[in-house]
């Protein structure tokens, strides 16, 4: 699939790591972003998963190299391997579970201490569909016993601003805000920290194919958009 990589736009690789407590939905966010899919009873990640996915911006193509970690206590000592040299991090919590925000703050602190200085960090509160304000109104439990939200938007947002993090509330289940997170990260990576992966100069055919894979910000993408993924 390397032959698809040579879009005319400059293309650069970005190493991105997902951190956060187990079961907050890290793998589900990645699955939504890479395959536009969701699984209700996802089995826990074992170790860490490495995936790639392209994100086409108007002026350049970002090829995300994503490390989805399992987030288990016993592998905490391995985490540095995943965030070392990472240009971006997604720190995820479950907005129905306050302890997961505490854990997320720990990760943010560790990243600020140990990771590359320029790292772009996004704080993501996931499972928005379980709350009353589930973004696009698709929340499944919205008319049930009501709101499962335990972490207010205000609280998380204030914290994110203090620490200069990007902040999103998402639902991997409905897809709400998921691509937006990755696009915002792609946009926030400073031009200077981008190493151009491959020179421009591919055939027109490849270019038009690359065009089709453009990330559509307005809705679910064609499931076949997996194309750009080099896994």
């Amino acid at each position: 699939m390397a032959d698809l990589a040579g879009a005319p736009r400059p293309s650069s690789s970005v190493k991105l790591v997902l951190l956060g407590e187990a079961a907050v939905g890290k793998s589900s966010l990645v699955l939504r972003f890479v395959n536009n899919d969701f699984q209700e009873n996802k089995e826990p990640t074992i170790g860490a998963a490495f995936l790639t996915q392209k994100c086409n911006l108007p002026t350049r193509t970002i090829k995300f190299e994503i490390w989805d970690t399992a987030g288990q206590e016993r592998f905490a000592s391995l985490a540095p391997m995943y965030y070392r040299n990472a240009q971006a991090a997604l720190v995820v919590y479950d907005l129905t579970k306050p302890t997961s925000l505490v854990k997320a703050k720990h990760w943010v602190a560790e990243l600020q201490r140990q990771a590359s200085p320029g790292i772009v960090i996004a704080l993501v509160g996931n499972k928005l569909d379980l709350t009353n304000d589930s973004g696009d109104g698709e929340g499944t439990d919205a008319n049930d016993s009501g709101d499962a939200r335990k972490v207010s938007t205000e609280e998380a947002k204030t914290y994110a601003e203090e620490e200069s993090l990007l902040f999103f509330e998402t639902s991997a289940k409905t897809g709400y805000n998921v691509t937006e997170v990755f696009t915002a990260i792609a946009n926030a990576i400073p031009e200077t920290s981008l190493k151009t992966a491959r020179g421009a100069g591919a055939s027109a055919a490849a270019a038009s194919r690359a065009e089709e894979q453009r990330v559509n910000l307005n809705g679910p993408r064609d499931p076949n958009a997996k194309e750009g993924c080099a896994c």
Binding site: S27, K42, E43, I46, G47, A49, L51, F75, L78
Partner: peptide, 20 residues
Amino acid sequence: NMLFESGGIRAGGGENWVPL
């Protein structure tokens, strides 16, 4: 068992790095 009976690795759809 990890690879074929449990979904944890195949479900990821990518490459996995597993301390064991």
